[in-house]
């Protein structure tokens, strides 16, 4: 399978890099940096915290927050609030009331309190539901955000964000939630095509070979068409009877109903 690489365009090789800086200059930089007692980063500095599936606070804490979530100041609007805000010491504990709400509503509700916080719930596998998938915040004199992980289904969610009351910097947080019918997972820790459906290296299989394996495992199959960057003429998926068994598989993803979704085409992945 042809795989175009840009390795030849690499402006500097690793070997060239290794001899670029003298040991003295290297040590001097490290010495200068560590000579300074770490200070809080400047406010404009971005800090990206990537937390994938690591519980940050204990279940007991999560439960305690849930117990207090009686809607501190709900937004004044006809529809039910997507978030609840409750004051707890120097923090606002912000809980997700409606895990299916448009993220724009979360943003508005934060905005009503002068906060620039973007919250999103992404469909994910059951073991990541209620966990933080992504978090990015900026330094703020008020302190840092804390997240409270919990469980998160389609209708109810016990996750929360603890925001210092005077926090005014930007932050973005993505929690995982259970998938709805027909949804595909939004995140995955897969490394190779097909890993999510238990067939790593699926791009080396023909359709016939992959189908035989998946059938033996009783995995339902759906197909998506890809040809030279286009999904035409099958933008909504190609029927199985139009798929040639000798075609190439580009990718295999797991759908929300545990079906395998195979991206196939008459040519190998470019």
């Amino acid at each position: 399978m042809t795989k175009i690489s840009i390795s030849r365009l690499n402006p500097v090789t690793d070997n060239e890099i290794a001899v670029l800086v003298s040991t003295e200059a290297r040590d001097e930089l490290a010495e200068h940096i560590t000579a300074a007692t770490p200070e809080p980063a400047p406010r404009s500095w971005w800090c990206r915290r990537l937390i994938v599936g690591i519980p940050l606070m204990g279940v007991a804490t999560a439960a305690a927050v849930v117990a207090f979530s009686s809607g501190w100041v709900g937004p004044q609007r006809a529809e039910a609030a997507a978030l609840s805000f409750q004051r707890e010491g120097g923090y606002l504990v912000v809980r997700v009331q409606d895990p299916n709400a448009d993220p724009e509503r979360y943003r508005e509700e934060f905005q009503q309190r002068g906060m620039d916080i973007h919250l999103k719930l992404a469909p994910t596998s059951p073991d990541k539901a209620g966990k933080v998938l992504f978090m990015e915040d900026r330094d703020d004199p008020a302190g840092r955000l804390e997240v409270v992980e919990g469980s998160c289904g389609e209708r109810a969610c016990s996750v929360a964000v603890k925001v210092p009351v005077s926090y005014r910097s930007y932050a973005s947080i993505v929690f995982g939630r259970a998938v709805e019918q027909g949804e595909m997972y939004d995140t995955g820790a897969d490394d190779e095509p097909g890993e999510g459906i238990g067939l790593p290296g699926i791009d080396k299989y023909t359709v016939a070979e992959a189908v035989a394996i998946l059938r033996a495992r009783n995995v339902p199959i759906e197909y998506r068409y890809q040809y030279r960057g286009s999904d035409r003429p099958y933008p909504n998926g190609i029927p199985a009877d139009k798929v040639d068994p000798d075609w190439y598989i580009h990718e295999g993803l797991r759908g929300s109903e545990n079906q395998a979704i195979l991206f196939v085409g008459p040519e190998p992945e470019g």
């Binding site: 175009i4 197909y223 960057g229 199985a240 040519e267 470019g270």
Partner: peptide, 29 residues
């Protein structure tokens, strides 16, 4: 997609396999 775009820009897409006319074993989509 990046590699595919690169390949198309270089027009080095591998030759297309002849698509078979026969209907493969059915699998409900």
């Amino acid at each position: 997609r990046a590699r595919r775009r690169l390949a198309r820009a270089l027009s080095v897409d591998p030759p297309r396999r002849a698509a078979r006319a026969q209907v493969p074993e059915g699998d409900s989509a």
